[in-house]
Design a protein around this nucleic acid. Structure first.
Length: 376
RNA sequence: GGGGGUGCGCCGGAGUUGGAGAGCCGGGCCAGACUGUAAAUCUGGUGACUUCGUCUGAGUAGGUUCGAUUCCUACCACCCCCA
């Protein structure tokens, strides 16, 4: 697996590149739709590919391990074969569930014990078995097992947690290198920077992570409730340290504005549930601002959902019709808005890529962010 | 035409069988939240007004009573039975 840096914006840290994987190339900056349990909720694989041209999607180790189970995925020949998505896949390790399911787990040096949210059964996740599970799932990019710390977080806890994540990373790295891919193609392990919102911890973590001979690196523990200036400051500090020639993945980010600001800070890869979750809840993103399609003001608005959208679905259906679908609780409503929002996020990162290559990214970004956070 | 029954907030239900209602449950409607997905979820509002409060309110109009959603009278509407 190889990352090629292609262009670098002269006015900021934004850059473009291509990550070559066994399931195809990923052009960065890239937004990766989240498909936790092997499906991007409400969106067909052929829609992701043909209608909105997603380059890579996510899966989640914790969720896929619990259901359908590692044995099924291994028998299926890996997640690509199981769900029919033949482009690249990245699996998160379950580190986020250490955060989001905090009340159902216990952390020890050995690993994290979870009480399944499905049936309460107990499961121990260790750096070693998380690597083994991700080998069986067969994602192209797999993530180190970490602890995503909450916000706010005491300095002492953040420090202790960061050091444990580093020790877990070392064990992940060892296990990963002791094992071979099961499904016949190369996998890459991305380490994760932690350190909460503390500058010295973020620096220290970025330096530790930089020492690994990885294909790419990730930044975790952000977009967990901290103010945006903190998120940007931490990202800025870390991208100054992480190697330039490797892709940087900012985990769980974010809003359209977050994406553009963090691209300017040197981030290449993003994933976030916002476009799909908010789509199911009736919030759609456009280049002019956001729209709550459930609002009464759209009742008789027969203009397209988004006339400027880069996919046919958003141009075909009207606001009034999509609002009606939401009012009637029809499944087609969230399906349409999910396609629309993902299309918008992919368009946004694609445009960023063009503007970086053209050398006018910063000016374009600054005029975009003014509009993106408006509510229409 | 005769007899019986039932009437409150956008809708349905519960409850009050003389003693504190702008009040319970569900739905609808109107908004808001959502960042490596326990999320097609969650939260709030939904009589009026000059809104830390005040006023009006149990089909309509009267009456009895210290006090009426409750009892009485008339009328109206709907439902059931008989002709």
């Amino acid at each position: 697996m190889k990352f090629t840096l292609e262009s670098q914006d002269p006015n900021c840290k934004a850059r473009t590149g291509t990550l070559q994987t066994a399931h195809g190339a990923i052009e960065t900056p890239v937004f990766m739709p989240v498909g936790t349990v092997g499906t991007v909720k409400g969106v067909h694989q052929h829609e992701l590919k043909d209608d909105i041209n997603a380059q890579i999607i996510l899966g989640n180790t914790y969720h896929l391990y619990l259901r359908p189970g590692t044995d099924i995925l291994e028998k299926a020949g890996g997640l690509h074969k199981f769900n029919g998505w033949d482009r690249p896949i990245l699996t998160d390790s379950g580190g986020f569930q250490v955060f989001s399911l905090a009340h159902r787990r216990k952390i020890k040096e050995e690993g994290a014990t979870f009480a399944s949210h499905i049936d309460g059964s107990k499961h121990l996740f260790t750096p070693e078995n998380v690597m083994d599970i991700q080998r069986k799932i067969g994602a192209d990019i797999i993530m180190a097992f970490d602890e995503c710390t909450p916000y706010p977080c005491e300095y002492k806890y953040a420090k202790r947690s960061m050091h444990m994540t580093h020790r877990w990373l070392k064990r992940c790295w060892t296990r990963f290198n002791e094992t071979e891919p099961i499904h016949g193609y190369e996998q890459a392990l991305f380490p994760i920077v932690q350190g909460s919102v503390f500058k010295d911890l973020r620096k220290q973590s970025a330096e530790v992570i930089s020492q690994y001979d990885s294909v790419g690196n990730a930044i975790g523990g952000l977009s967990v409730g901290e103010p945006h200036p903190d998120m940007y400051e931490m990202t800025d500090i870390v991208t100054d340290i992480l190697p330039k020639e490797k892709p940087r993945y900012l985990m769980g980010v974010g809003t359209p504005t977050n994406l553009l600001e963090c691209i300017a800070l040197g981030i290449d890869m993003f994933d976030c549930v916002l476009p799909t979750r908010n789509a199911r809840h009736g919030l759609i993103y456009t280049s002019e601002g956001t729209i709550n399609i459930k609002n009464a003001k759209w009742k008789a608005d027969f203009s397209p959902l988004d006339i400027n959208a880069s996919n046919p679905t958003s141009q075909f259906y009207t606001k009034a019709y999509v609002r009606h679908l939401f009012q009637a609780k029809e499944l087609l409503g969230p399906q349409i808005t999910s396609i629309h929002n993902l299309s918008f996020f992919l368009w946004l990162t694609g445009e960023a890529r063009k503007h970086i290559a053209a050398g006018d990214f910063l000016a374009w970004k600054n005029q975009m962010v003014v509009k993106l956070d408006r509510r229409l």
